[in-house]
Design a protein around this nucleic acid. Sequence first.
DNA 1: GCCAACGTTGGC
DNA 2: GCCAACGTTGGC
Length: 156
Amino acid sequence: MRYWLMKSEPDEVSIDDALAAPAATVAWTGVRNYQARNFMRDGMSIGDGVLFYHSSCAEPGVAGIAEVASTAYPDPTQFLPESPYHDPASRPEQPRWLLVDVKASAKTRLISLPELRACPALADMVILRKGNRLSVTPVTPTEWQAVLELAANPAG
DNA sequence: GCCAACGTTGGC
DNA sequence: GCCAACGTTGGC
């Protein structure tokens, strides 16, 4: 059992969108970074914990809890010419990009970046490191527990 | 919109 | 293999 943080732009798929989807499950399309892909391919197992993070929005931060709901499989959007995630260099017989299904478990209060940064247990969290841009990152059990505790507490 | 940080590309 | 140029990410 491992833990992860996965970024989503809420304009595209928010935690509410995920919870409203059939079986509260969404295919995590659009990852186009090899390191992030490799985490999904080589690191993830069904049932792993996921921090659902809202990025590129007015209030970036952890917005919900989810779990990995499939092993990695080819991201169909890489083959769709009309998709913003289209990759003309990827061949169907050897797909370059993968995704996993993510099942939303619960919405949390929004735990903002400043609040995450203020938590001592999260000092080394990958997402908080300077210059970090990875959309899929590992989370340690200690960090996972610390975020759950923040989520359970009142804001501030 | 700005810009720092990072990944990718491509010429050499 | 080096590295400059370019594109993207993402907080502010």
